[in-house]
Nucleic acid binder design. Structure first.
Lengths: 221, 221
DNA sequence: TTGTGTATATCCACTGTTCGGTATACCATA
DNA sequence: TATGGTATACCGAACAGTGGATATACACAA
């Protein structure tokens, strides 16, 4: 465990992330988080005002790493724009095959807190999803989808969130490859038809690189 | 309220559906369901063995009506295949604009029960989603997407579930129209290119028919 | 060096409440 | 009178949050 000599607050957030991600924010009690962090509930309540604040901190802490992982999957995939986007879904499918994979923490948490629409954790989830969408939008624009980059980014996000939900329900990660295929098709449809020679849309078949996620530890994402 | 002279069991399921759909299965207690049905908890436990059974019955009862609604939205939309599918999303966006709309009960419930993957309610949710996908698949096949009907149906389901999740998070039903646009584009991409004259792909712009969902009562879906 | 004050950080034990589920008794009607 | 259905009152467990005491560390003055 790397979170040994961290500040107490960070250890609490790490413990919360591990438990919340694995079992959901409703099924994990404050006592369990405290125990996982190796301290007492009273100490936890010294660093956080409420369980809701711990939940919000959990999601805020996952925002940047998650976005960075999407970027890595995108940049590390060979091929053109469409293949790079498809690479995200391909790597996601790999991650989803980990036996402990439990879907998207942002989406799941916001569903668990549907009674409290203004909950800070829900706002954190919205911010994260928007950030991913905005990043995608700029990448699409850079690659030539000038006027339609916003629409395309939205549709890819829809496929992404659909993947999370559908795969979590059916426990069948092949849906993610179907989503990647759909994203690729959509992008090809948006790209300038055939007059401009698209030098990248026919490059390497974009095989996922790292053989990650061979079972142990915690799942990515 | 139409559930006045129904058998007790059905009144319980109706009450459960109303409350579970509005506030989630975890935030609604058995006492609340019993009170909503106009009887005591002990009576409820005479008709159901456990709360889990009530939850499962709630989803099982929604399977057929939900599927029927999708079919109606599809058949009642003018235009070709792509436009008919897009009509589903358009009507869904209308439904989602109802202030009390709370997303897809199947997806939400299965997220709330993520700790119990074999839960009968989760199985009911899977069955329902599969049923929608299968129906879509046959419609796609009937309309000419012979070999790719399965893949296309999957991708439409992904857009559908993505819509539910994304719109529930952002509270912005315009994502559903974006999903409908994506579905239309995908289908056009699958349809035989241009050699066969597609007499329907350019028909009426498929405006949603009924002016439904003008605020009161419970939201559809 | 010693003594005192203060802020940070931790813990044990407890409260009040909610919830799923039950024990037991009552009642209506066939 | 026996069966199906309903009601009151209750149980045990789990939970979020708190009261109050304690340990540590550092600042500054005697």
């Amino acid at each position: 465990m790397a979170s040994k000599n961290l500040p107490t607050r960070d250890r609490i957030v790490n413990a919360a992330a591990k438990l919340f991600q694995g079992e959901g924010v409703r099924d994990v009690s404050v006592d369990m988080v405290a125990a996982e962090a190796g301290l007492t509930k009273r100490t936890l309540y010294y660093h956080f005002r409420s369980k809701d604040d711990v939940i919000a901190a959990y999601l805020q802490a996952r925002d940047q790493p998650n976005l960075a992982m999407f970027k890595r999957w995108f940049y590390e995939t060979d091929g053109g724009l469409a293949e790079k986007v498809e690479g995200i879904f391909r790597n996601l499918a790999l991650a989803a095959r980990h036996p402990k994979w439990k879907g998207c923490g942002f989406l799941r948490t916001s569903v668990e807190l549907v009674k409290t629409p203004g909950h800070p954790a829900v706002l954190a989830a919205r911010t994260h999803k928007k950030r991913v969408e905005d990043w995608l939008c700029t990448e699409l624009a850079k690659a030539g989808l000038a006027s339609s980059s916003q629409a395309a980014a939205r549709q890819i996000i829809l496929l992404l969130d659909g993947s999370f939900s559908t795969v979590l329900l059916h426990r069948d990660p092949s849906y993610m490859e179907a989503a990647g295929d759909a994203a690729r098709r959509l992008i090809h449809g948006y790209l300038p038809p055939a007059d401009t020679l698209d030098d990248f849309s026919v490059s390497a078949p974009a095989t996922p690189s790292r053989p990650q996620n061979s079972e142990p530890g915690r799942p990515l994402l």
